[in-house]
C-alpha cells in the first residue's frame, strides 16, 4: 500500500459517501444518472467475486463491502425510495446500458491476462469502470445545471483513478516486473474521459461561477 493508492481509495470512498449523503439528506437524486450507478454496482460485483475466497487484508475486505453496499443502496434509493425516485429524471437518463456492457464483455473475452471465468469477469469490470461514467456525463450535458454536490461527486470519481495511475507508476518502479497493461490502459482511458469535465470544473472554480458543460 502506498500513499497514492491510499489517497485514491479515500477519494473514491469519499465520492460515494458524498453521493449517499446528498441522496439521503435532501432526498433527491436530481442530476444523478441511475444508469451510471447501476453500471458501478455491476463493476463492483464483477470486480469483487473473490471477496469471500481470497482474503487479502481487513482493509481490502472492508472497503469492498463498503463499495458494494453503497453502490447497491444508491441504486435502491433511486429506484425504490418513494421520495427520491420522484426526482429521478428518467426521460433524460436514456443511455443504453448494453451499448457499454456488451462491448466491454466481448473485449474482456478476447483481451485478458488469463482465460478463466474470474479473470474475464475481473477484466470486464476494469473495462466497464472506464466507461461507466458516460451516462452521467451525458446527463450533465443535457440537464446543463450541475449542483455542487453532483459536480464534486464526478470530480472525486475522476480524481480517484488519476491517483491510482500514480500508484501504478510508483509500483512499477518499486516492485519487480509489475506490469499490467490492461489495468493501465483502462485506467488511463477512464481518466481521459473525465479530462473535459475536469477542464470545465476548474474553469468554473477559478472564475467562481456555476459549472456549465457545453451542450
Amino acid at each position: 500500500m502506498n500513499i497514492f493508492r491510499l489517497a485514491g481509495d479515500m477519494t473514491h470512498l469519499f465520492s460515494v459517501l458524498v453521493l449517499l449523503l446528498k441522496i439521503h439528506t435532501i432526498k433527491s437524486c436530481a442530476g444523478i444518472s441511475l444508469k451510471t450507478q447501476e453500471l458501478y454496482a455491476l463493476v463492483f460485483t464483477t470486480r469483487y467475486l473473490d471477496i469471500f475466497t481470497d482474503f487479502i487484508s481487513l482493509y481490502n475486505t472492508v472497503m469492498k463491502l463498503i463499495f458494494l453496499g453503497s453502490s447497491f443502496s444508491i441504486v435502491w434509493y433511486i429506484r425504490r425510495h418513494k421520495i427520491v425516485r420522484r426526482s429521478y429524471d428518467k426521460d433524460q437518463d436514456t443511455f443504453r446500458h448494453y451499448f457499454l456492457v456488451i462491448p466491454c464483455l466481448v473485449l474482456a473475452v478476447f483481451i485478458n491476462h488469463k482465460f478463466t471465468f474470474k479473470e474475464v469477469m475481473w477484466t470486464f469490470s476494469l473495462y466497464l469502470e472506464a466507461v461507466a461514467i458516460l451516462p452521467q456525463l451525458v446527463l450533465l450535458q443535457r440537464t446543463r445545471n450541475i449542483d455542487n454536490l453532483t459536480g464534486q461527486y464526478v470530480f472525486l470519481l475522476g480524481a480517484y483513478r488519476a491517483l491510482y495511475i500514480l500508484n501504478w507508476i510508483y509500483r512499477h518502479f518499486t516492485e519487480p516486473h509489475y506490469v499490467h497493461w490492461i489495468t493501465w490502459i483502462a485506467g488511463v482511458v477512464q481518466t481521459l474521459l473525465y479530462a473535459d469535465f475536469f477542464y470545465y470544473y476548474f474553469q468554473s472554480w477559478k472564475n467562481n461561477e456555476k459549472l456549465q458543460l457545453p451542450a
Binding site: D9, I56, H113, W122, H180, T183
Partner: peptide
C-alpha cells in the same frame, strides 16, 4: 502470477 499483481487493489 500475472493476474495476482492487481488483486490487492480495489
Amino acid at each position: 502470477s500475472q493476474g495476482q499483481g492487481h488483486k490487492d487493489e480495489l
